Simulated assay, not measured.
Amino acid sequence: MPSTQHWLMKSEPDECSIDDALAAPGRTVPWTGVRNYQARNFMRDAMRVGNGVLFYHSSCAEPGIVGIARVASGSRADPTQFDPASPYHDPASKPESPRWLLVDVQALRKTRLLGLAELRGVPALAGMRVLQRGNRLSITPVTPAEWRAIEALLA
């Protein structure tokens, strides 16, 4: 799997918003609830502490990039898979061989909303995974050129 230093991570704001992350101890939240094997594999195999993160609000009135964060830990078992009261419970996953992982994400700053329409209007972002038809992954790699284009939009 190719190494990347930048990621886009989607969160529903009613579960964990950029404001929630900024208000958390150490401005750091565990990225729980990922239940897609490809996204899990990104966390397990490619994410490294210090990698940049575009914090993205999804499943809301105005989806888009709302903050800048960083990966703050290596991957570890997501405890929600073992909790029968959690919507992310997975009875097939066992503590001795967990199926689902998480990383901690540290929010660095809130940004203005970079919505889908604005992102689609930037030629340098034409190949960005989050903008591709049918893309539903909650975690996607961001190329260095895409990261620079986002930084320019936020400057």
Rank of each mutant, 00 (worst) to 15 (best):
R44S: 08
W147L: 01
I68R: 05
R133W: 04
M1R: 07
H6A: 12
G115Q: 08
Y88S: 14
H57L: 14
G127L: 09
L113S: 03
A145G: 09
F82Y: 15
E118P: 03
L54A: 13
R35H: 08
M47K: 04
A124Y: 14
P98G: 13
R120K: 15
V29E: 04
D90S: 07
E12M: 11
I68E: 14
D90W: 02
V49C: 13
Q106G: 10
V34G: 00
G127C: 10
D19S: 08
T32D: 14
L101R: 09
R148F: 02
L116S: 05
V130T: 13
G127S: 11
G67V: 04
M128W: 06
E12H: 07
A23Q: 11
E151Q: 13
S59D: 12
K94W: 05
A149N: 06
L108N: 10
G64W: 00
L8G: 13
G127V: 09
G64Y: 01
N41T: 04
K94D: 13
L116T: 15
E15K: 11
F82K: 02
S73A: 04
R133L: 13
I18Q: 04
A124F: 07
L108W: 12
W147A: 02
G67S: 08
L102Q: 09
P63A: 06
D83F: 14
R136W: 10
Q106W: 02
A92L: 03
A69E: 05
R70V: 11
E15A: 10
H6G: 08
H6L: 08
M128P: 03
L153M: 12
D19H: 13
P95K: 10
A149E: 12
W100N: 02
N135V: 10
E146C: 08
Y56W: 06
I139V: 15
W100F: 03
R136Q: 15
S75M: 02
N41V: 00
L153Q: 12
K10A: 02
A145F: 04
R48Y: 14
Q106D: 13
Y37I: 05
P95V: 06
L54W: 14
R48P: 05
I150E: 05
G115W: 00
L154K: 07
P13N: 12
G127F: 05
L22C: 06
G115K: 06
W147S: 04
S58R: 05
G67D: 03
A85Q: 15
A152R: 07
S73N: 06
Q132A: 05
S86N: 07
N135I: 04
S17R: 11
T80F: 00
D104E: 13
V71I: 13
H89E: 07
T140K: 01
K10W: 01
A69F: 01
V53M: 08
E62V: 07
L119M: 11
D78Q: 06
L119Q: 01
V122I: 15
S11V: 02
L125D: 06
P63Y: 01
D20F: 07
V34Q: 01
M1F: 14
V103D: 00
A23L: 08
G64Q: 09
G134C: 11
R76D: 00
R40G: 14
P63G: 09
G67W: 01
P13C: 10
D90N: 06
D78A: 06
V122M: 11
Q5A: 12
G33Y: 01
Y56A: 03
W7K: 02
A61W: 09
A77Q: 03
